[in-house]
Simulated assay, not measured.
Amino acid sequence: MELNGAAAIVSGGASGLGEATARELAAHGAKVVIADLNEERGKAIADEIGAVFVKCDVSDEEQVQAAVDTAASTGAPLRFVVNSAGIGWATRTVNRDGTPHDLASYRKVIDVNLIGTFNLMRIGAAAIGKTDPVNEDGARGVIINTASVAALEGQVGQVAYSASKGGIVGMTVPAARDLSVIGVRVNTICPGIIDTPIYGFAPNAEEFKAKLVAPVVFPKRMGRPAEFAHLVRMLIENDYINAEIIRLDGGIRFQPK
């Protein structure tokens, strides 16, 4: 599908993978709506790339509806939804001191990563479905969700995170089948180790990054947010890619820890 002249909503668009995606789509002519909780950063990016910022908690139905309504009222037809908002968490199912995993934190990760993704997907798809088809196939739009290789090879302490990302993987095919009736394709990207700001806060950040890169097959480095964003654009522009779960990981296979 053609990006130029269409609207796109990107959750988590104020940082990391979402920011790179917002920049990529805007650079190719899309009217981008950045949906994120970080108002200061989100507005700054929106101003820089000619986008619109909406403060949004993806797990909140009313806030997501408001963000989608904003995207649908930009003057360009809403055709693209990119779900890249999410949070990480690391706790063992039973900790070394014998205490069980905190249930509230598990629920929080599921609520943001999995339910938040479904929330924007369902509301965004309903809005896309109201637009006119763009071609003889009846295509109206594309939804791209972000999971993780942790959905497939979760490490020690990733039970909540892996469950949330595995849920995203699991709903890819049925969602694509559901939304085929309104001409919407659904694909999911499973990134590996991508060099986003989350890895740069620790005093020993470079040493930590080197350890993360060790199991990557080739190229022997962390992935770049721009490579994720490029894949998003490719999945939008190639009309025959649908219901796919695509690894973006340099061939990494996670060890237990």
Rank of each mutant, 00 (worst) to 15 (best):
T99P: 05
L78C: 10
T93Q: 10
D97C: 06
S84Y: 10
S105N: 10
G75I: 09
L78F: 06
R107Y: 06
G75M: 08
R107Q: 13
S84P: 10
M121E: 12
V112Y: 05
V142F: 00
W89K: 13
T117H: 06
N145R: 00
V109L: 04
L120S: 04
P77E: 06
G116E: 10
T93C: 11
T91C: 13
R140V: 00
I144H: 02
R79D: 07
D102E: 13
I110H: 06
G124D: 05
I115G: 02
G138T: 12
T131A: 05
T146E: 00
I143D: 01
A126P: 01
A127K: 08
N135K: 00
V112P: 02
L114C: 05
T117P: 06
R122L: 13
R92I: 01
I128E: 02
I110G: 09
G116D: 09
D102C: 06
D137W: 13
I143Q: 01
I128H: 02
T91A: 15
R96S: 10
A90V: 15
S105H: 11
D137T: 15
G116M: 08
G116I: 03
F118R: 09
N113V: 01
F118C: 08
Y106M: 12
S84A: 14
T131F: 02
A76P: 02
L78I: 04
W89A: 12
L103H: 12
I87H: 02
T117Y: 09
V94T: 15
P100G: 14
L103E: 14
Y106Q: 09
R122A: 13
K108T: 09
L78N: 05
A90D: 12
I144Q: 03
H101W: 11
N113M: 02
H101E: 15
V142M: 04
A125P: 10
R79Y: 00
D97A: 04
R107F: 07
R107P: 02
D102M: 02
L114Y: 13
A127P: 04
W89E: 14
V112M: 01
T131K: 00
A125F: 07
N95L: 14
R140Y: 01
A139E: 15
V134W: 01
A76V: 07
V134G: 01
R79N: 09
F80Q: 03
L114I: 02
R122S: 13
G86I: 11
S84C: 13
A126L: 09
G98P: 03
T117R: 10
A125W: 03
A125V: 08
F80A: 02
P100T: 11
S84E: 12
I115N: 12
P133C: 04
V94P: 00
V112D: 00
D97L: 08
L78E: 04
V82A: 08
P133L: 01
T74A: 05
A76N: 14
I123F: 03
T93N: 11
D111L: 12
G86R: 06
D102Q: 06
L78Q: 04
G116N: 07
W89F: 15
V82Q: 05
G86A: 07
T146L: 04
Y106G: 13
S105P: 00
T99K: 03
A76K: 12
L114M: 12
I128G: 01
G138I: 07
T146P: 04
R122D: 07
G86Q: 03
D102K: 13
I87C: 04
G138C: 11
T99H: 10
V82L: 05
K108R: 15
K130N: 11
P133K: 03
